[in-house]
């Protein structure tokens, strides 16, 4: 399978590989898998509880080059975004950016799902009063 240039670029030089230290505050972790191929992806987001903005992101993905490139790309994409905006990121953006062929679309879906899973995980650790609805909190 011929990978696109951008996939190869992310694959050979992946951004933000790794994990945040265990027990670090304000980190949401999403672990998702693609049962068709058996690949597993972990995405971690560091989210500011004051304003709900994603400040940092790290990933660990093994195996498939497109999944590695997809997760590398989304770690860059989500930084600086509000979580509600990040929740709306669609895999099609990734497919377009990385030029993924049809058989590799599920790899980008994995990255989209990982973002959602990480944010959902982070929310589940927050107290309702703090960051879940930061904008409303500011208004009142």
């Amino acid at each position: 399978m011929a990978y696109s240039e951008k996939v190869i670029e992310h694959y050979t030089n992946p951004r933000n590989v790794g994990s945040f230290a265990k027990g670090e505050d304000n980190v949401g972790t999403g672990v998702v898998g693609a049962p068709e191929c058996g690949d597993v992806m972990k995405l971690q987001l560091k989210i500011n509880p004051e304003n709900g903005v994603i400040e940092d992101a790290k990933f660990k993905t093994f195996g498939c080059g497109s999944a590695i490139a997809s997760s590398s790309y989304v770690t860059e994409l989500v930084k600086g975004k509000h979580i509600e905006e990040a929740m709306t990121i669609k895999n099609t953006v990734i497919v377009k950016e990385l030029n993924l062929p049809p058989v590799k679309i599920h790899c980008s879906v994995l990255a989209e799902d990982a973002i959602k899973a990480a944010i959902t995980d982070w929310k589940s650790h927050q107290t309702p009063a703090s960051a879940q609805e930061p904008r409303k909190a500011q208004e009142s």
Binding site: V31, P35, V40, K60, F62, V109
Partner: peptide, 21 residues
Amino acid sequence: KLADNNKSVPADLAEMVFEVQ
């Protein structure tokens, strides 16, 4: 479809995957 509504990996299995990797 196998993947529909089936993206989460059991926690112990995921941990094992990452350890072995």
